[in-house]
Amino acid sequence: MVSKVYIIDDDDISVYLTTMVLEEAGFAKEICTYTSADDALADLSFTVPAPLPEVILLDLNMPFKSGWDFLDILRPYEATLKGKLDVFILTSSIAVSDKEQARNYPLVCGFLHKPLDEESVASIKRACTRRT
């Protein structure tokens, strides 16, 4: 079981739904939800050693800072975070271009379409198992 997971999504219903599914699947000990990238970034401390989430489920289409903006902000820390933190894109977008763009970010371990279902959760688990 993953110790901590972040859900970053401005869509409240989507957050509600994702949380429900993760709880149902007993995916994480702790589920933190953020409706904006800025809120999430505020909790992510890269300077002081602090417990990082092992998994981040990231929405792309958000006001002010999009999912891509969030990933761009993490770029300087990629080397540090790689292997400790897996980002999974969770988006309603079915555009192929988004999936292509995600390949440019090494931290992104998977591209998932909403709604999050048991199967998707299983794939996240498998990815995490491989890592550990």
Partner: peptide
């Protein structure tokens, strides 16, 4: 279509499953 239309649809699908 891919974001704004798909978003509520995805929620509908997810919620109904749940």
């Amino acid at each position: 279509v891919s974001h704004n239309l798909r978003a509520p649809v995805a929620n509908l699908v997810g919620l109904s499953t749940m």
